[in-house]
Amino acid sequence: MSIAEKEIEIVEEFSLFDNWMDKYEHIIEIGKELKSIDEKYRNPEHEVKGCQSKVWLHSYLKDGKVIYEADSDAIITKGLIGLLVRVLSDEKPEDIIKNELEFIEKIGLKQHLSPNRSNGLVAMIKQMKYYAVALNIKQ
């Protein structure tokens, strides 16, 4: 499934919710289901800066594709990055770099992209792209 297809899938999934509580309960569920990052990556080196909650990100190449592993100490943040991991992980670096994520706005979570939120979603997307660029050069 391409990045665009995964985004469409998420938008459809969220279209089922007609109130904020169901939507956030779903995000919390995604957060709970996201596998915790290996303890050895829970360090300042892997921390995504600029977040009110702590966010850790690790990535590596597997068969020419970027695999992301991420975690947070706040469950909503973890749910949001769970969505990002679902969309961007297991994709080619060049596809990740050029992609303009549109699903966040479409599922009504635009406020989380505001710099005021400092929940790290913007910083997180930026960091994921940096990793993709770096891994692309390594290839």
């Binding site: 956030y24 469950i75 909503i76 943040t77 929940n119």
Partner: peptide, 21 residues
């Protein structure tokens, strides 16, 4: 067991403004 950020985000959904951090 609940992060302050999560509390602030959900309270905001209920129209309640608090500070977190």
């Amino acid at each position: 067991g609940i992060h302050a950020f999560d509390i602030g985000t959900l309270l905001d959904q209920m129209g309640i403004a608090v500070r977190t951090g």
